[in-house]
Amino acid sequence: MSPLRHVHPRRASERGAETAVSAAPPVVVEGLCKQYARGGTATPVLRGVDLRVERGECVFLTGPSGSGKSTLLAILGCILTPDAGVVRILGENLGLLDAHRRTLLRRQRIGFVFQRFQLLRGLTALHNVAVPLQLCGVPPATALVRAMRLLEQVGLRERAHALPSQLSAGQCQRVALARALAVEPELILADEPTANLDEYHGLEAMRLLRELAAARGRTLVVVTHDVRILPFADRVFRLEHGRLQPGEARLVDAGGTRGV
C-alpha cells in the first residue's frame, strides 16, 4: 500500500519521522520528457532527464533561463506531470497518482521555498509559518506553537507578529524557510531562494536552509543561478537544452559552510 494512505493529516510531523527510514531515494527520475504547446506547436522543454537524489542529499540545478529548471522543479513538486518517463517522488510513482493524491503528497511530504518568498501578506510571520500545518488539519493553537518554534530556529521569534510588509527581504526568506519546514517534509524544493536577496542575506538564507535540512536529514533540491551558493551543494547539475549534464559533486559538512 502506498505510504500516502497511511498518512493522517493531523500527524504530519510524526509522519515525517516515520517515512524518513524508508529505503527508497526521495527523487528518482528516468527518461523524463516534458513539452509545452506554444503557438500551436509542441516545444520540448525536458528531453530525457535522468536524476537520482539520495536521502539527505543537497542537489543544485543550474542552467540558463528557459532551460527547463523550473519545469523540472514543478514536476518534482507534483505540480506538473511528465509527458514521458518515470518519476518517483518519495517512493510514489507520479504517473500512477491522480491529482488529489499528488496534492496530498505535496501538502504532507514536500516543502517549497519560492524565489519571491510568496508569503501571504495579510498574515503575520507566525501565521504564515502555520499555514502548511493548518492545511494539514493541525488545530490552530498547536500549529501556532510549532510555528513559533520554527521561527525561533530561524532567529525570528521577536518578529513573529510582524506582517511581511514590516519585514526585510532577508527576514521574509527566513519566514519562508520556516514555512517550508513546518510539516517536517521529507523533500524540500527551493526555487531561486537567494535571487531576491543581497549577497550577505543570500548566503545567510542558504546557510540556514542547508543547516535546517541537514539537521533533520531532509533532502534538498535547489534551482539557482547564484554561483555564490554552489559550495553548499553536495552535487550540482546543469540543465541545458532540456538535458541534465552531470556536474561536479561537492562534499559539504553538516553545517553546510565549507567553501563559502
Binding site: G77, I79, H100, T103, L104, L105, R106, R107, Q108, I110, F112, F114, R116, Q118, L120, R121, V131, P132, L135, C136
Partner: peptide, 15 residues
C-alpha cells in the same frame, strides 16, 4: 489581487 497567494496555497498542497 491575491492570485499569487492562491497559487502559493495550491503549490503548498491546498486543494
Amino acid at each position: 489581487d491575491r492570485i499569487q497567494e492562491f497559487g502559493t496555497l495550491k503549490a503548498m498542497g491546498a486543494d
